[in-house]
């Protein structure tokens, strides 16, 4: 089976058409690939490089430059805790510590059941509602430990389906 599906290629053609040069669609296409597979694997970079007629190194350079690209598989829910200044002052360290304890994993790790991956991120641009956590494509704001427990519970039981899943 070819790595890039026909469906992807169709979408790619639409995305490329937005720009006078199709390589400008590299980042949106990588985001699309990541949406399909959860992460951007080496062979995905390879396939995309060939598809866009770009040197592999250009694609790899881009993937390693932008933080949103996961280079390894992540859990079903990717918990991304903001720890920048406003969130820090609003208790991000406690939020992070609580998550670590509750999930039994460190930053960058995934729970054994494959449900949660825990990451820290820099400013998410929602400082007025600090502390903030992004789960997949959704923001969870003004977090408290209690609120966090509810969110985790809901995610675990599929009651709160994160966007894109």
């Amino acid at each position: 089976m070819p790595f890039l599906t026909d469906e992807f290629k169709e979408k790619a053609a639409r995305l490329c058409a937005k720009y006078p040069r199709k390589d400008a669609a590299l980042i949106p296409l990588l985001l699309e690939l990541q949406k399909e597979k959860g992460f951007v694997a080496e062979d995905a970079m390879d396939a995309l490089a060939k598809f866009l007629e770009l040197p592999y190194a250009r694609v790899k350079g881009v993937v390693t430059f932008y933080t949103m690209f996961n280079r390894e598989p992540v859990g079903k829910y990717h918990l991304q805790v903001c720890r920048n200044i406003s969130c820090h002052m609003a208790g991000a360290p406690d939020i992070l510590a609580h998550l670590k304890g509750k999930l039994g994993i460190a930053e960058g790790e995934t729970t054994r059941d494959g449900l949660f991956t825990l990451s820290t991120v820099e400013c998410l641009g929602a400082c007025g509602a600090a502390p903030v956590m992004q789960v997949n494509d959704d923001y969870f704001e003004s977090l408290t430990v209690e609120k966090l427990n509810t969110v985790l519970d809901d995610l675990k039981h599929g009651r709160l389906r994160a966007r894109g899943l």
């Binding site: 937005k18 669609a25 980042i27 949106p28 350079g61 881009v62 932008y66 933080t67 949103m68 400013c123």
Partner: peptide, 27 residues
């Protein structure tokens, strides 16, 4: 008019880094 999503790099707020990123390069 099109919307173009970035992929996580504060530097892309700098206008020429933004242009690089918009062209599909590192910002």
């Amino acid at each position: 008019l099109f919307v173009h999503r970035g992929a996580g790099a504060y530097i892309c707020g700098e206008e020429t880094a933004l242009l690089e990123s918009l062209e599909g390069f590192k910002g």
